[in-house]
Design a protein around this nucleic acid. Structure first.
Lengths: 181, 181, 181, 181
DNA sequence: GATGAATGAGAGTTCATTCAT
DNA sequence: AATGAATGAACTCTCATTCAT
C-alpha cells in the first residue's frame, strides 16, 4: 500500500470530519499509521498537503465528469449528463466533495493551485458556449451561467447527500430551466 | 464611540480578509484600537465573538430582506423583490455577506447559533409555499427549492460583487425560471 | 458596616475555600459587595491585602490566647489553658485558623509581616522558660519546644475541626507529656 | 540523561524556592534545559506535573521509611527508628520534604493523588495499633496519634534543617513521651 | 525512507492594576 | 470615597516543523 495515498486519505477524512484546524499533523500521522516525519518526506508543509489534496480531488472530479462526454450529443443531453455525473461523484465521494466546498474559498489554497484548478472547467464552459450559439441557452456571460448552475447544484447536493436518482434528475432539470432561453 | 461595535467590525474585516485562523485576538484588538482584555469584557471567547457576529449579520440580512415585503403581492413579485434585496444586501455589505458564506458551514458555529438563524428563513419559505399552492412553482420540497435558489444566487453574487442592476435582475429571473412550473 | 472589614472578610472566605490563586480581585470585590477600585482605596495591592489579613488574624489569635493568662498560675495550668484557648480559637474560627496554616509558609508573606507576627509568640515562650527553670519542662531549646507543640496541636485540630472538649484536652495533655521532664 | 527526571528536578527546585505560582512553565523549562513543549510530552499539564511530583516524592519517603522496618522489634524501637528515618529523609532531601509540606494541603493536589498517597501510611498505623494492643501507647484514635506525631516532627525538622543526631533523637523521644501511656 | 522526541513561536485567555467618571 | 471598563503583561498550552537516529 502506498504511504502517500494513506496520508492523503487520512488528511481528507480528518479535515472534513473535524475541520482543518482541529486536525493536527500528529493526528493525521496517527490516522495514516505513519510517523509525523514521514509526512514531511512527501509534503513540505501542512499547507502543501492541503493544496495537493485540493488539486488532486478537483482533478479527479473533472476527470470523472468529463470522461465519456459525447461532444456531439445534443447540448441539453450533455448538460444533463455532465451535472448528473457531478452529483453522482458527490454522492459516491461525500468526503471529497465536502472537502472541495470547505476549501474552495479558503485562504489556505494558493493562487497557483487555484489557477491550476480553474482550467479544468473549460470543457464545461464549451457546452454552455455551444448552447448559446444554438440559441437554446440564455445569452448571459458563460462563466456566470456556470457559477449559477454549480452554486445551485452544489448547495442542493451538500444538504441532501442521500438524494435518489429522481431527486438528482429534478435538480439538474431545474438548473436547465434556469439557463435555457 | 461604541467599543463592542468596533470590535465586531474589526473582527469582521479581518476574518473575511485574512481568514479566521490568521486573525489573532491580538490583531483584532489592534484593529479595533482596544486592548486584548477589553474584548473579553464583551465576549467570553473568540468562538463566542464569531457566533455573535454570525447571528447579528444573519439577522441583519433577513431583517433587511423581509421588511417591507408585501405578502399580498403576486408570488413572482415577492420572489423577485426578496432575492433582489438579498443581492443588494450582498453588494452593499460585501464583508458581511462573505462572512456568512465562510462561516455558514464552519465547525466554529454552535448548534445554538445555527438553530437561532435557521428560524429566520421561515417567511421566505412561505413565499414558495404560496406559489406551490397556486400551481406556479414546481411541486418540490420547499426547503430544497430555497437551497437551490440561495446556492445559485449566493454563488453568483460572491463572484460578481460589482454586478449592476440588470445583472442582478437577470440572475433572479434565472432562478425564477428554475423553480416556476 | 465597615467596607474594609467586608473586604477582609470576603478575601478570607475565598482564600480558604477556593485558594488564593483562584480568588481574583474581581471575585473578592463581588463577595465584598463593592467595586474593584474600592479595594485599592484600602489596600495597595493583593499582596498587601494578604499580608494585612495575615497579621490581623495572627494578632487576633494571640490576643485571644494571652488575654486573661494568669502568669502566677502553675506552669502546667498556664500551658494547658494557653493551648486549649488556641484550639478553641481554631474551632470557633476555622476560616481564620486555616488561613494562618495556608499562608504561614507562603512566599506571599513579606519578611516584615513575618517579623511582626513572630514577636507575638514571646509571652508563650516565657511559660516554657518558667517551666524549664522550675525543672518541670525538658531542657531543650525553648523555640524548639514551642514549634514541636504548635506543630502537633495545629495538625491535630486542622484534621479534626469538630473535636469535642475531651478530645481537645487529650491532645493538650499529650503535648504536655511530650515536653514535661 | 533522563529528560523527565530533569524536569521533575527543576520543577521541585523552583516550586520550593520560589513558590508554585511564581514558577512558570517557561522558567521550569529553562531550569530543566529543555523546551516548553518538551514538558508537555511528559506531563499533560502543570497540575499533572505537580501531582506526579507529589506522589513520587511521598512514595519515595515512605519507601525509605519502611524498608528494613523490623516488624518483630519492640514497638518503641519501631517507632523511634521509623520517625528517625523520616527525619533523616527530611535532612537529606530538604527540597523534597518542604515540597510535601507545601503541597500536602494545596488545592492543586487531586483527590486521586491524595487517595493514592494516603494508603502509604497504613504500615505506620500498624506500629501504633500494636503498641495500643500491648498497652504501651495511649488509647486514642490511631490516626489522631499519627497526625499529632507527624505534625510535631515535621514542624520541628522544617525549622531546624541542620539538626544533629542528638537533636533528632530528642525530638523523637518527645513524641514517644507524648503518645506512650 | 521512516521515525517521533524535541522545540519554541504564537495562540487564546486571565487578572492585578489603573484612572476617568 | 466609590466605581468598573479598560488595559496588556504574563500565563498555560498547542502544534507545525526539525533532525538525530
Amino acid at each position: 500500500m502506498n504511504k502517500k495515498d494513506n496520508i492523503l486519505k487520512a488528511a481528507l477524512k480528518l479535515f472534513v470530519e473535524q475541520g482543518e484546524q482541529a486536525s493536527s499533523m500528529k493526528w493525521i500521522a496517527k490516522e495514516a499509521k505513519c510517523g509525523i516525519g514521514t509526512m514531511y518526506n512527501y509534503f513540505q508543509s501542512k499547507d502543501e498537503l492541503i493544496n495537493e489534496l485540493y488539486v488532486e480531488i478537483k482533478t479527479k472530479l473533472f476527470t470523472n465528469i468529463l470522461e465519456e462526454l459525447n461532444h456531439s450529443a445534443p447540448v441539453k443531453q450533455q448538460f444533463v449528463e455532465t451535472w448528473l455525473k457531478a452529483m453522482n461523484f458527490a454522492v459516491s465521494n461525500p468526503l471529497e466533495y465536502t472537502f472541495l466546498e470547505i476549501f474552495s474559498h479558503s485562504p489556505k489554497i494558493s493562487k497557483q493551485a487555484s489557477d491550476e484548478v480553474n482550467e479544468l472547467i473549460y470543457p464545461v464552459l464549451e457546452i454552455f458556449e455551444k448552447g448559446k450559439k444554438e440559441g437554446i441557452i440564455k445569452d448571459i456571460d458563460t462563466l456566470q451561467l456556470v457559477i449559477f448552475t454549480n452554486g445551485a447544484i452544489t448547495s442542493s447536493i451538500l444538504r441532501s447527500p442521500n438524494i435518489d436518482e429522481n431527486g438528482k434528475k429534478a435538480i439538474v432539470l431545474m438548473a436547465w430551466d434556469a439557463i435555457k432561453s
